[in-house]
Design a binder for these strands. Structure first.
Lengths: 133, 133
DNA sequence: TTATTAATGCAACTGTGTTGCAAATGTAAA
DNA sequence: TTTACATTTGCAACACAGTTGCATTAATAA
């Protein structure tokens, strides 16, 4: 009974779920919601795209973050589940081609006196492999 | 001839410029544009607030960054000018009281193979001094 | 096959930020 | 002080990302 195991996110395997997961299979990097809505606009309503992405994130299949301009991006999670989310890695946005992806490097956050750091969002920008001349 | 020295940002010392700088004198941390527009709504139009903040940033008096939800925050620069911007420090947002400020710590960004990192935005979240029980 | 309920589409909305333009205001020079 | 004029402002309308309510559609357990 799928619905009891997974009460928060995806319950039914619908065409939109498949289509969105397919996009993340084709594109190994991160995808902005804007481009995803645009890409799928002939087949699905933008509200649907937003809601499916929400549910996939709840299930730990995707994770989201904001790009430089504040728009939302999603990328596949690796090693995450609905209960545990291990994605505190940095993201990298290429200033030439615009491509965004996850970095596997670990950025050490120094301990801050008198504060408790509980989460971090790190966005790096520069030139990606393909754009480095 | 002020207007020739400083062609990009603030040229005239107007009431709105004074009022906004005053807010940053009162509040030592970062201030979100939303709260600033709200705070000053009886005296200035929101467009004016946005434009003055833009100009103060151009002159290197303030710097801006995005909070967790993608809204814009401004904080006073220290050691910056219109030509050189030294603010690549992390920002800290308290999850309890919502206060945001600049951290003086240096986060070392490890070099990423085959990529050139040119900029970084680091937002840390947790408990600030006042909220740490 | 049917009953149930999750998922969808649509339209209208929210919130943040932007633009064009006429009117107001600050400032250099007379 | 007054004048001249570019900068700054307010306003209204817009742009854009994302959300909400609700009736309809479709996936799935039985």
């Amino acid at each position: 009974m799928l619905r009891y195991i997974c009460t928060m996110g995806i319950v039914r395997r619908t065409k939109s779920v498949d289509a969105i997961l397919e996009e993340f299979k084709i594109n190994s990097g991160a995808i902005s919601v804007v481009s995803l809505v645009d890409q799928l606009s002939s087949r699905f309503n933008k509200t649907t795209v937003y809601r499916v992405l929400d549910r996939l994130e709840e299930d730990g299949i995707l994770h989201s973050f904001l790009g430089k301009t504040g728009i939302k991006w999603y990328a596949k999670c690796s090693g995450c589940s609905a209960s545990e989310h291990h994605d505190v890695h940095p993201h990298f946005q290429c200033l030439s081609c615009g491509k965004v992806d996850c970095l596997t490097v670990n950025v050490r956050i120094p301990s801050i006196p008198n504060r408790k750091v509980e989460a971090s969002q790190i966005l790096l920008q520069g030139q990606c492999e393909a754009c480095l001349v």
